[in-house]
Write a protein that binds this DNA or RNA. Structure first.
Length: 561
RNA sequence: GCGCCUGUAGCUCAGUGGAUAGAGCGUCUGCCUCCGGAGCAGAAGGUCGGGGGUUCGAAUCCCUUCAGGCGCACCA
């Protein structure tokens, strides 16, 4: 019996009570689906609901009286073993073991699809994340969005959405000029510009640019006149840097379907197109020689300059054009993940969204993630390129590996500032809960290997009623939750919920496995029984869910560790 | 000054109105005579920053206050 079946059973029990006059409630006050949840305490049964507490007042009765009535109606339902009224009026429901145990079969047979749903079905989602400027390697903040963003994409896909992962390649504007000047200065052995970029990677890229140019049969870019030289370093430097970023992300398990160049918006006329469109809608005005968008009409603090008085497009013009472009490419949901240092952008971008006639927070959704702080010896470490303590995506992967890095960054809420301890990173990487989850998975695989040796086979039968121990009903209940966890993670855009779920599941698996008197498999001199087979089904169901969950996080599920 | 995020165990963090607030790490005590000890069982450790309010019920919602982070450009 699934939670939704239970929920329906509760609804019909309520409807029946109303129909025979026991419950004085207008028919439209009967909820179509009743919320059931896993109680914290096992003694409180497999599922619990507070529906009696919520409806008693409207019905002019007491919660306990209503609960008693529902309990009596529910108890005769097949698949339900017991219904108890507890505390102020909770209904605690215990399923019979066979009904609960059937889930193991369902999961094994559903395989990699168990956990998938349709809550986001039919939606075309554009998910933009990372989008770090190609003026340096991806640092720790960007890595966080890579881990969280990719997991979010996977969770949305598992919920039926069609997701396009997109990276906005910011190759237009002053910071790129600074980057190019920094490369040129470094290549010529000159002092880095005051507002330029330092760091070892600048020297490496500068050398590579020279080598690339010479290899292409071009003149040494260092010898060109300044303007041409800078352009040469810009073009090849950006290309080079972006290649490295792509490679690092790929090594991290994150690949984007679209790498969108900001330059192209300006070259293609997309900016003019977007501004024209806003002008037609009547949201644009001219003042002080500049072109403004009246974002205050849509809740922004102040109006925004779109075209500066020198005729250049302001930065937001690119974002406006980019948003419109995404919508014109047919995306229903445009999701952008940004660091907390950009949260001031939400107001104006939502205003832009509204100015186009779209629904803010629907067609455009901006997710803000808080910063990652580095900590060493309990003290915060300020990252600075000059001090040479920038932690890049490659540094992180070198230190702990992709799995541990992705897991630790994806397991906390994006609303949280997270602290990353550099000493811990370097030394005790086994502290990462990812190993706890992966270990549980490899343990299920070890059981499978041994089961084959001992002649325990799933195909010889499955009696779900034999999964009747409290540790087994705990495991089954947890397995049952997985699809809801995935759906909730997608709906709330919080993939970390999957990680926390896996940790709980792994814990319950370890507990179940480790009981001395209830081994999964027989001793070598013992004969195989139905109980061993039933436990193997459960073992394999856990294995499947651990594997499915780890995949949603982009983490491997090893068969051996 | 205004805005967004955060404040939960010694540390890092879960917990979007339910019952006795949880996990990992750290500390302490047990557990390998056969399925993987990267594990399990147990103990200690909390005025959920403070104060009001709403509710049958608040870590969760509202108000207020304190503390920390991040923002408030014709920069990108």
């Amino acid at each position: 019996m699934t939670p939704s079946e239970l929920s329906e059973a509760l609804s019909s029990a309520l409807a029946a009570a109303v129909a025979d006059g026991t419950l004085a409630l207008p028919t439209d006050a009967v909820p179509a689906s009743v919320h059931v949840e896993r109680p914290r305490q096992r003694e409180h049964g497999d599922w619990a609901t507070n529906v009696a507490l919520q409806l008693a007042k409207k019905a002019g009765t007491t919660p306990r009286a209503l609960a008693e009535d529902l309990a009596a109606r529910l108890a005769v339902h097949p698949g339900i073993q017991a219904v108890e009224v507890a505390g102020p009026g909770f209904l605690n429901i215990t399923l019979d073991a066979a009904s609960a145990g059937e889930l193991a079969r369902t999961i094994v047979e559903t395989g990699a699809d168990y956990g998938k749903g349709a809550s986001e079905a039919g939606k075309k989602v554009n998910l933009e994340f990372v989008s770090a400027n190609p003026t340096g390697p991806i640092h720790i903040g960007g890595v966080r969005w890579a881990a969280v963003g990719d997991s979010l994409a996977r969770v949305l896909e598992a919920s039926g959405a069609e997701v396009t992962r997109e990276y906005y390649f910011n190759d237009h504007g002053a910071q790129i000029d600074r980057f190019a000047r920094s490369l040129l200065a470094r290549a010529r052995g000159e002092q880095a510009p005051e507002d330029g970029y330092g760091g070892q990677y600048i020297a490496e890229i500068a050398d590579a640019v020279v080598a690339d140019a010479l290899a292409a049969g071009e003149p040494d870019p260092r010898t060109l006149p300044d303007a041409e030289a800078q352009e040469a370093f810009r073009a090849r430097g950006v290309q080079r840097m972006f290649g490295e970023i792509k490679q690092s992300l790929h090594d991290f398990g994150v690949d984007f379907a679209v790498y969108f160049h900001e330059d192209s918006l300006h070259e293609s006329g997309a900016v003019d197109h977007a501004v024209d469109r806003l002008r037609q809608e009547g949201h644009v005005f001219d003042a002080d020689g500049a072109v403004w968008l009246r974002t205050t009409d849509f809740g922004d603090d102040k109006d925004r300059v779109v075209i500066k008085s020198d005729g250049q497009a302001a930065y937001i013009a690119g974002d406006i054009a980019y948003y419109l472009d995404k919508r014109e490419r047919g995306f229903d949901d445009v999701i952008i993940m940004l660091g907390a240092d950009h949260h001031g952008y939400i107001g104006r971008m939502m205003a832009v969204c509204a100015a186009f006639g779209d629904e803010p927070n629907e067609n455009l959704q901006i997710l803000i993630g808080q910063m990652v702080n580095l900590v060493k010896d309990g003290q915060p470490v300020r990252m600075s390129k000059r001090a040479g303590n920038v932690l890049t995506i490659d540094d992180l992967v070198d230190a702990v590996g992709v799995d541990a890095a992705r897991y630790s960054l994806a397991r906390s809420s994006a609303d949280q500032n997270i602290d990353l301890d550099l000493d811990l990173l370097a030394s005790q990487k086994n502290e990462n809960p990812v190993y706890y989850v992966q270990y549980a998975h490899s343990r299920t695989c070890a059981v499978d290997r041994n089961a084959a040796d001992r002649g325990v086979r799933r195909e010889d039968g499955f009696d779900p009623a034999l999964l009747d121990h409290p540790t087994e009903s705990a495991l089954l209940g947890r397995l049952n939750e997985f699809p809801r966890v995935v759906a909730q993670a997608a709906q709330l855009r919080e993939p970390h919920r999957v990680a926390r779920y896996l940790e709980a599941l792994a814990g319950e698996y370890h507990t179940w496995y480790q009981q001395k008197d209830r081994r999964v498999l027989p001793y070598p001199d013992e004969s195989v029984t139905d109980t061993h087979r039933a436990r193997l089904w459960l073992n394999d169901a856990v294995r499947q869910v651990l594997a499915n969950g780890l995949d949603l996080l982009g983490v491997t599920a090893p068969e051996r560790m």
